[in-house]
């Protein structure tokens, strides 16, 4: 009985406390990040657009072994045309990644036995055409050199 008669007062105290808690946030600094101007810092693990690693002599590390194709969860995302060079080693004549189908799981990077493919920190990939999201070997090479220049990726080897 006693408790019930006190209920209105407890309610009013609870309401006042609630309002006070909300009000005190006025004095805190906003946590918003104004996106296109400022961006969140990304670390080296970030899984963004792909790039093919080029060594100092300008050659690809990729040997067109096809592991990335075998670990990729979506089918027909990575396509490799392989060819033999003079010394009898395989190299990719063309290497395409279809970002329309890619789910950015990072398996190709993780399980590549040669460390030949990496993921850069580029994540603004929107485009008007679907075809622009099909990365061929030249784009992938360019991505790597770009990311080295921007220092968004550590040079491997």
């Amino acid at each position: 009985m006693m408790k019930k008669s006190l209920k209105p007062f407890r309610d009013i105290i609870a309401l006042a406390l609630g309002h006070l808690t909300v009000f005190k946030h006025v004095f805190k600094r906003p946590v918003t990040l104004e996106y296109p101007e400022k961006k969140l810092p990304l670390n080296d693990n970030f899984r963004g657009e792909h790039a093919l690693v080029v060594d100092n002599e300008g050659k690809l590390l990729c040997t067109a072994c096809g592991t990335c194709q075998r670990v990729c969860p979506s089918f027909e995302t990575i396509e490799i045309e392989k060819e033999k060079n003079e010394s009898g080693k395989f190299y990719p004549k063309n290497y395409t990644i279809d970002l329309n189908k890619c789910i950015f799981c990072g398996n190709c990077v993780q399980y590549c036995p040669f460390g030949a493919i990496i993921m850069t920190k580029e994540y603004e990939l929107a485009d008007e055409k679907k075809s622009a999201l099909k990365l061929d070997i030249n784009t992938l090479k360019k991505n790597y050199s770009d990311s080295i220049i921007k220092k968004t990726v550590k040079s491997k080897r």
């Binding site: 909300v22 009000f23 946030h25 006025v26 805190k28 600094r29 906003p30 946590v31 918003t32 104004e34």
Partner: peptide
């Protein structure tokens, strides 16, 4: 409302 929720609001 933005200030109450630690945002910046229209800017």
């Amino acid at each position: 409302l933005a200030f109450f929720t630690q945002r910046k609001g229209p800017n």
